[in-house]
Nucleic acid binder design. Structure first.
Lengths: 292, 292
DNA sequence: TTCATTTGATGCCTTTAAAGTATCAGTTGT
DNA sequence: ACAACTGATACTTTAAAGGCATCAAATGAA
């Protein structure tokens, strides 16, 4: 029974448990009149008689019983609160706001989150869908604790490290002639029309995709620009074009598109963890450490 | 923000909300140094830094954020607690332990309880199955607030009033010859074998049943004694005998027995509300009043 | 009955925790 | 360079809480 509640409350709780003023005063290490006064004050403050007492017996009134139950709850919370604050300071409890992109939520993030939840069940996580450049802004302003995004990270105040790397695969309509091949050389797509992410919103990914094509000796011809992964897959399935996408489980589950590895390609999409270097949230350190 | 929590906690909460010591001190109507000291004391007591502060900015640490959340919960409970104690004192909240017999739970009690819950949702009710004579003991000892039982009530210290009256009906096996009649004169059962409640446990009901038979001019011949209503109905269905039972919905729902009203009978089973005259639980008064 | 014992409540004085005042040292923005 | 803030510290004052002695009522044993 520590000093988190007002003393009138603490005294009342002990009297309610002992139903005896002198024994309560002994448990509280004060003289008996102090207890009498505290109870009288509390009753006056609340305007409710809490204890029925004559010179021989002490009993809780209905109001006192109800009040004790509520006090018990509050006391338990306050006792737990100190320990919880320590756990939060050690990164074992607390809250993280995490930004993610489609590649993360379709790829390694779900598995990683469930492992993290097992190891740190008291850390609550809020997930926010944001494009990479939006995440970098939100990290700078403190709206996000952690970003899962595509580089490059240019700010000196944002730390980052590689979270996951995926090879690219070719994404084709189900009945595309190249779908007959086990693997596809990137050059084979030189004359195809491409469905790509809109450069305004996919500001980091689309340039990477174009750079890889350029390395393979061609500039991709753009048929459609789409705002998100579902739209891209849908447009490919609708035979509007082909695209490159990091290998992930989700894309293999669609029956209306064909996924084929690239031949002789070292191209990798790298998803980074990024966070503000001044962010002192210990749960952030827990997450980063587990991701290593 | 009343005086239910220790002042360090109250001061911390206001600082956490304002993120500014001087503004917090104004809201608390104290000088600013008092707030600084309270925070320092609380941090020392917990062993956790709650607020990151330099001469320009104040921010919650992760530990402080977690601690604030817990304090918020406790503070809300304590604010609510006073109002709840008043409601409990007025009989609008609290707890009742209620004893009941088969006739009550098979009869009017469920309907009455649901009406009571609608009118007094903050009164929690614990229902306890007890025979009438057990309830009278438990009322005397304070283990029950209220009993739903069969009289007579002999103790001067137990108050009682009629809760519900049911006419008796004859309970017959489905294919019993008398089941062909719409109604049955009690005398017609003079030569039947009876299934009755065991007199040890059904100490109040069975004598009443026998008294009614005696009024009709016969002493019922007992084939079986059973400990509860289900057993009585089951034994009747098994053609071990017939019985009298207060009219209630449950008995009409069994297809293996026949229920027939008694002819020219004023016999009624009366279920009483009973309570200890010294019981000051205001929720008890609420219940009794609604039952009137 | 009488009287010692026990209960919670009161009055008066002391102690101590909390508040106030004045001031300091560190930033920030002009 | 300096005024205008911030939160922290030192010292003094105040008021809340505590202790002691005692009371009145109830109980139970002699």
């Amino acid at each position: 029974m520590n000093r988190f509640l007002a003393l009138q409350i603490r005294y009342f709780m002990v009297v309610a448990e002992e139903l005896h003023f002198r024994r309560a005063s002994e448990r509280l290490h004060v003289a008996q009149p102090a207890v009498s006064r505290a109870i009288r004050q509390l009753e006056a403050q609340l305007g409710v008689k809490l204890l029925e007492r004559d010179n021989r017996n002490v009993a809780l009134t209905a109001g006192g019983e109800a009040y004790y139950q509520e006090c018990r709850k509050a006391a338990d919370i306050m006792v737990e609160a100190g320990a919880r604050a320590i756990r939060a300071a050690d990164g074992l409890a607390g809250h993280l706001t995490i930004g993610y992109i489609d590649f993360a939520i379709n790829g390694p993030l779900p598995r990683h989150l469930s492992r993290f939840y097992e190891a740190f069940p008291e850390v609550s996580i809020e997930l926010v869908r944001r494009n990479s450049h939006e995440q970098l802004e939100d990290l700078a302003s403190g709206r996000l604790d952690l970003g899962l995004l595509i580089g490059p990270v240019t700010s000196e105040r944002i730390a980052h490290r590689t979270f996951h790397q995926s090879p690219y695969v070719a994404v084709l309509p189900r009945d595309h002639p190249l779908a007959a091949c086990r693997t596809i050389p990137l050059e084979a797509l030189a004359n195809e029309l491409f469905v790509i992410g809109h450069p305004d919103t996919w500001r980091h990914f689309t340039p990477q995709l174009q750079a890889y094509c350029l390395e393979a000796g061609f500039i991709p011809r753009v048929a459609q620009e789409a705002p998100n992964s579902d739209s891209i897959f849908g447009l490919v399935a609708a035979r509007m074009g082909v695209t490159l996408y990091p290998d992930c489980e989700l894309s293999h589950e669609r029956s209306d598109i064909a996924i084929r590895p690239l031949e002789n390609s070292n191209a990798r999409l790298s998803i980074a963890l990024a966070w503000h270097i001044d962010n002192a949230n210990p749960a952030l350190a827990s997450f980063i450490e587990q991701a290593s």
